[in-house]
Design a protein around this nucleic acid. Structure first.
Lengths: 349, 349
DNA sequence: CTGAAAGCGCTTACAG
DNA sequence: CTGAAAGCGCTTACAG
């Protein structure tokens, strides 16, 4: 193409990128030749080899996309990442799971990525981080255990949950149950006994549980198989219309996500309980839940811990970009705020 | 690294890829040297330049990710794409909008992609397709107008909608209103007059509208600003509790998505109408809607047109991969099935 | 089974 | 302002 334009490749390159001093005449000839020959611009593959950058940020999640994206928490975080990445001219590569298998293949191993953000991983991510580290790809981990070689983006999961529990305690609640997010990727449901808790690996779930236990040391916990209204309803049913007829019904439930909280409320109403008169419910996240329940009941707003997802996403992307530039690691930590809605009230006597 | 192992680069390459005949001894030396030097495997950038492939499939959507992923239709389609792409060892690159701007930059122009799938685009995609074509990147378009140079994946939007309308006609309905998906990316709401309809560009919306109009030639249409329960409720309110007190209430509503349908039903119930006794509602998609309304009302299942998203997604990915292999274009067309639930019944007299 | 060679298409100093 | 050169790191025929 450069030859057709009668210039050197280097000049053509400068003409396309606009990065160097090129005469109007030369630039016009290059553009004309490009149009003539149907040249679609510099090949990104060659460019990225030469520059040592591909302009791609990997986003790693450990679920099927349809599951991951059904959770607004992931979507909002991703949106924050996309915003910052987009401004920096980077695109997002969706990568399904830390390590697709043990064969040592999969995108973690061979996809072109300049940096990776780990989002909402409920499984052990150390092997993936190890691979990425060997590839010298910077890793940012959102709400994960401290991992050697990964820049953390933290949320005050434990402390915030503790505050929510303290709020319930001040309202006089003594029988508090936790409805938890998954403890791992197994999609199990049901009462969390010490054995189950011990095998849990999901950082966020465990931290939030510990927070409540800081106030209610022996609060029972019921695990949901995912974060959805339906899962919350299933967990709620086990509490309010449970198999054990004489079992005590909690006066308050701490749900580890807003979707779960809405499901719990739905189950409570189905069981003939009033919210918050008979049972108080606290959520986590502060998302806008699009569910008819919230429209067709007196409930206007969940009591919940509002967390700044998009800020988290943006911080993660900025941390990734900073490492790319060879800068210092850029960890960040965010706080959740207790927002008091109308799903909590004094304990029934 | 090859030098440290005492072999030629070509041998090291074969040892890593496992593609060629390499002695156990040489392979062991290569792996040892790699471990020693912390070599993380072949650089994907160089590999993709050499091979002319990056193993990346672009997925183009025209909304913010948080909007696009709030619609389960997109998510399920994406999941189908991811499944096939994953099996073929390809990753998905999320690309926000056809053309980020007129400056001629953005991932469409310079991201490394072997093929592109256009998903749920409500805007004119011709410019993007033109760019991709010049880049010689195969393009697959899901439910779009016929575009020169893009392989289409079709759904029988018009014919299916016509069947749903005929079903309502057979039930005796004469006053049918359509609640439509967006006609473009403007997020407008309200009655669709001929002028508005004429400026519509969203293929799916228009086709589904035409289908209903094939039976009810003058059916009024109300446009929603997106596909969600909340948008359906807003549209439904305008129908059932509208500003015009004397205005006739439709006996049946054709909603262009299940989420909209649930919102319409919610608004109907709020307005004191019974479903389906007072008003029948038909949806589109056949997704599992996670909304408490469906749990807390006698309604168990929407009457809707069930479409095969994931199959569509898989077909799109297969079409993209086939073009990559230099094969023939691989268009596909899918059918939606009318599933009769309990949200439709005879017209009220 | 192994090695030397060529080249994928660019961009970036550098010399003019 | 322009061009010649070097090289990013691989892989793939090809010759041995």
């Amino acid at each position: 193409m450069a030859r057709a334009a009668g210039v050197a490749p280097s000049t053509a390159s400068l003409a396309f990128s606009g990065a160097g001093p090129v005469s109007e005449d030369a630039k016009a000839r290059v553009l004309a030749a490009a149009a003539e020959l149907g040249y679609g611009g510099p090949d990104p593959r060659a460019r990225s080899l030469r520059r040592g950058r591909s302009g791609v940020i990997g986003v790693v999640m450990d679920e099927r996309l349809s599951d991951a994206f059904r959770d607004p928490v992931n979507v909002l975080t991703l949106d924050g990442i996309a915003e910052v990445a987009g401004e920096a001219g980077a695109s997002l590569l969706l990568v399904r799971s830390p390590l697709d298998d043990e064969r040592g293949t999969g995108p973690i191993v061979d996809a072109p990525m300049d940096a990776v953000v780990l989002v909402g991983c409920n499984v052990r991510i150390d092997p993936a981080v190890a691979v990425l580290r060997r590839r010298q790809i910077p890793v940012v981990a959102i709400e994960a255990d401290e991992i050697e070689g990964a820049v953390p983006i933290h949320l005050d999961n434990r402390e915030a949950s503790r505050r929510a529990a303290a709020f319930l305690r001040d309202l006089g609640h003594t029988a508090v149950t936790v409805v938890t997010l998954p403890l791992d990727g197994s999609r199990r449901r049901g009462l969390v006994d010490p054995a189950r808790e011990a095998e849990g690996v999901a950082h966020t779930t465990l931290e939030r549980l510990r927070g409540v236990r800081g106030v209610y040391g022996d609060a029972p916990a019921v695990e949901a198989a995912g974060s959805s209204v339906e899962e919350g309803r299933i967990a709620g049913q086990s509490l309010f219309a449970g198999a054990a007829p004489g079992a005590a019904i909690p006066t308050a439930v701490v749900a580890q996500s807003d979707l779960l909280a809405v499901g719990v409320i739905s189950a409570a109403l189905d069981a003939g309980l009033r919210v918050p008169e008979d049972v108080s419910v606290v959520g986590f996240d502060g998302i806008t839940v699009d569910d008819s329940l919230l429209h067709r009941s007196p409930i206007r707003q969940l009591t919940t811990l509002v967390q700044p997802f998009e800020q988290k996403g943006r911080a993660a992307a900025r941390a990734a970009l900073a490492m790319l530039e060879g800068g210092e690691p850029h960890p960040a930590a965010f706080r959740s705020e207790l927002r008091i809605g109308d799903t909590t009230g004094p304990a029934r006597s």
